[in-house]
Simulated assay, not measured.
Amino acid sequence: MTIQDLADEIGVIPKTIERWITQGKVPYRRHQYATAAALHVDVTTLWDDERNLDTATDLTKAEIAAVYPHRHTVPSGLWREIYGRAERRLDVLVYSGLFLSEDPVFHDLVRAKVAAGVQVRILLGDPDCTAVRQRGIDEGHQIMDGKIRNALVLYRPLMRSHPDVGFRLHDSTLYNSIYRADDEMLVNPHVYGFGAYMAPVMHLRRLPGGGLFDTYAHSIDHTWDKARPITEQDVASITGA
């Protein structure tokens, strides 16, 4: 990003940013947080200011809109509401996320979002990978691979009708299932010995200067970059259907 790019992004003149760089001038706090948000870093990475450390911690706390003790206690319509508000991106990072693949309303929502130009990325675990087998063992049922195959079969019509929907398989060890819509997400941590539906869920909303939301967002991007695209033909091979 050039100095001019950053100036345009945060609403200052380029000479102001040059003084931050060449003269060590410390910006107003609102400009510090705007700059950190534009560069996708924590504000304390750019300026060593004790006031920022306290404020960044407060902002991170403020990013937590709600915490639910179990996934099954999340209001049933919240998943649809969050994804319904997506205008730029819609992400799903899971092993199977079977409850979403079984929801016809979610399928209709995805179709509508793709038609509106929203980027949709759905990441499922590779049913043959070690991480998936281990997660099944950790949850105590050893059928995670089967759940993923079921999800793939359910997504198959969507793959056929809307090839613009991004489907990929990953072999990552997931510590959370993440459901993102623009600057809002639900994070479902994985807890040893429990299925995801029994684990807590955090509802996050991104705030400039807060680091919690961006940490999980980067996890989605990193997993996506490492994952492999999957086609409808791959589904037939994996599921035997």
Rank of each mutant, 00 (worst) to 15 (best):
Q134V: 07
G240M: 10
D234W: 04
K25M: 08
W224C: 14
M159N: 03
K15W: 10
Y216Q: 08
D138F: 06
F194C: 14
V235M: 02
A199P: 10
G146L: 04
H31Y: 14
W79E: 03
Q23N: 11
D42N: 08
N188V: 11
Y68S: 10
L39N: 04
P27I: 07
K61W: 09
A56Q: 13
L39V: 01
I10N: 12
M159Y: 02
I10A: 12
L53D: 00
A196F: 02
T45M: 10
S161N: 05
D48H: 11
T173G: 05
G166E: 07
L100R: 06
D171P: 01
I17L: 05
V165E: 04
K147A: 12
T60K: 09
V235H: 00
Y95Q: 08
D234N: 12
V94T: 12
G210I: 03
R71D: 04
D128Y: 02
A7K: 03
Y68Q: 05
H72D: 11
R29I: 13
Q119S: 08
T130F: 02
M144P: 03
V132S: 13
D221W: 04
M1H: 09
D58F: 04
I238S: 09
P69Q: 06
E232N: 01
A115E: 12
A37K: 02
V94W: 02
V92T: 14
L98R: 15
H190G: 00
V94M: 08
V153E: 04
M144S: 01
G11V: 00
R206V: 03
I178G: 03
T130W: 00
G77S: 11
T73L: 05
A37I: 11
Q23C: 10
I220M: 02
A62I: 02
P157Q: 06
G11Y: 00
V41T: 12
K113R: 15
P229Y: 03
D128M: 00
Y179D: 00
S237E: 15
R80G: 00
P208E: 01
L169C: 08
Q4V: 08
H72G: 02
K61S: 14
A66S: 06
R29K: 15
Y197K: 08
T44A: 11
A227T: 01
P69S: 00
I148F: 01
A62M: 03
I10D: 03
I3K: 11
I178M: 13
Q4D: 14
G195R: 07
R133V: 06
P75C: 10
G84E: 08
A112F: 04
Q134I: 04
